[in-house]
Amino acid sequence: MFYIGCFFTQGSSYISAYTYGLIHRLHHAHTDKAEDPHSPHNDPNPFMMMWTTRNNYFNLYIGKTDAAEKYKKNLPDWERFDKIAHNYITRFCWIAIYIIVYALLATAWWQWLFLPATIIMGSLQGMAVNWWAHKFGYENYKLTNTSKNILPFDFIFWGEAYHNNHHKHPQRPNNATRWFEWDMGFQTMVFLQKLRIIKIK
């Protein structure tokens, strides 16, 4: 359900849940260090960080680089599905669909300027969280890394803006810790639990 849901909502930005989980664990293990797969401290600007993240991701995905077995434990893996959903032919099909949608709905030339952002929306979201949240914001916890909370009320990133909270408590499903913080992603988990689709530990 969630693999297919990610595929239809992420479209051309779809990435392997297994490799994403792996790269995320490596980020926590090596935050702000040279081994960090996506750190603003390893690149001079957010676009270079996006490119570095892309290379590190694909090197892990194709097996060019490896990670310790402890980082691979209990990661979701549907290899047969990824062969269909995670390839350039499928990505170009999504891009064609986006172009058709823009052609049907765009009413002014400047609206087409949003097409590139639509195509790489997943990368832009990752860049925003991983660049901004290590550069700007407030801290609830003093840690050995530069993670910060971008927004006091996260209505954009569904809880991912609470990056400092997440680095302090990486196993917690609710990234909000203070009274004014609101994690919409966690509230969605609560709703899915009520429907008996998931069970929150």
Rank of each mutant, 00 (worst) to 15 (best):
residue 2 F to V: 10
residue 3 Y to F: 15
residue 4 I to T: 13
residue 5 G to I: 03
residue 10 Q to I: 00
residue 10 Q to S: 12
residue 12 S to N: 00
residue 14 Y to N: 06
residue 14 Y to C: 02
residue 16 S to A: 06
residue 16 S to I: 03
residue 17 A to Q: 11
residue 19 T to S: 05
residue 19 T to Y: 00
residue 23 I to A: 09
residue 23 I to E: 10
residue 24 H to S: 05
residue 24 H to I: 00
residue 29 A to T: 06
residue 29 A to L: 10
residue 30 H to F: 15
residue 30 H to M: 04
residue 30 H to P: 03
residue 30 H to A: 03
residue 32 D to Q: 06
residue 33 K to E: 13
residue 35 E to W: 10
residue 35 E to S: 14
residue 39 S to L: 03
residue 40 P to G: 05
residue 45 N to C: 11
residue 47 F to W: 15
residue 49 M to Y: 07
residue 52 T to Y: 05
residue 55 N to H: 05
residue 56 N to Y: 08
residue 56 N to S: 09
residue 59 N to C: 03
residue 60 L to C: 07
residue 62 I to S: 11
residue 63 G to W: 01
residue 64 K to P: 04
residue 64 K to R: 08
residue 65 T to S: 10
residue 66 D to C: 02
residue 66 D to Y: 10
residue 69 E to C: 08
residue 69 E to W: 01
residue 72 K to V: 08
residue 72 K to S: 10
residue 74 N to G: 08
residue 76 P to A: 11
residue 77 D to E: 13
residue 77 D to R: 15
residue 77 D to P: 03
residue 79 E to V: 11
residue 80 R to A: 15
residue 84 I to A: 01
residue 87 N to E: 07
residue 88 Y to F: 13
residue 88 Y to K: 10
residue 89 I to T: 06
residue 91 R to K: 15
residue 92 F to N: 11
residue 93 C to P: 00
residue 96 A to H: 07
residue 98 Y to T: 05
residue 99 I to C: 12
residue 100 I to E: 04
residue 102 Y to A: 07
residue 104 L to Q: 11
residue 104 L to D: 01
residue 104 L to C: 11
residue 105 L to A: 04
residue 106 A to P: 08
residue 106 A to I: 02
residue 108 A to R: 10
residue 108 A to D: 14
residue 110 W to D: 05
residue 113 L to P: 00
residue 113 L to R: 01
residue 115 L to T: 06
residue 115 L to R: 02
residue 115 L to P: 00
residue 117 A to S: 14
residue 117 A to I: 11
residue 119 I to K: 04
residue 119 I to F: 00
residue 120 I to N: 01
residue 120 I to V: 15
residue 121 M to S: 15
residue 121 M to H: 05
residue 122 G to K: 08
residue 123 S to D: 15
residue 126 G to S: 02
residue 128 A to Y: 06
residue 129 V to A: 07
residue 129 V to D: 03
residue 129 V to M: 12
residue 130 N to H: 14
residue 130 N to L: 02
residue 131 W to D: 01
residue 131 W to M: 01
residue 132 W to P: 02
residue 133 A to I: 07
residue 134 H to L: 10
residue 135 K to F: 06
residue 135 K to M: 11
residue 136 F to N: 09
residue 140 N to E: 10
residue 141 Y to C: 06
residue 141 Y to F: 15
residue 142 K to G: 08
residue 144 T to E: 15
residue 144 T to K: 15
residue 146 T to C: 12
residue 147 S to W: 05
residue 151 L to Q: 09
residue 152 P to K: 14
residue 154 D to C: 05
residue 156 I to R: 03
residue 156 I to D: 01
residue 156 I to K: 09
residue 156 I to E: 01
residue 158 W to K: 04
residue 159 G to Y: 09
residue 159 G to L: 06
residue 161 A to L: 04
residue 166 H to Y: 12
residue 166 H to R: 03
residue 166 H to F: 01
residue 167 H to R: 02
residue 168 K to P: 04
residue 169 H to P: 02
residue 169 H to R: 14
residue 170 P to C: 06
residue 170 P to S: 08
residue 171 Q to M: 12
residue 176 A to M: 07
residue 176 A to P: 10
residue 177 T to D: 13
residue 178 R to C: 12
residue 179 W to Y: 11
residue 180 F to S: 05
residue 183 D to F: 07
residue 184 M to A: 14
residue 185 G to F: 10
residue 188 T to S: 13
residue 188 T to P: 06
residue 190 V to I: 15
residue 192 L to C: 09
residue 192 L to R: 05
residue 192 L to V: 01
residue 194 K to Q: 14
residue 195 L to Q: 08
residue 196 R to I: 09
residue 196 R to P: 04
residue 197 I to G: 07
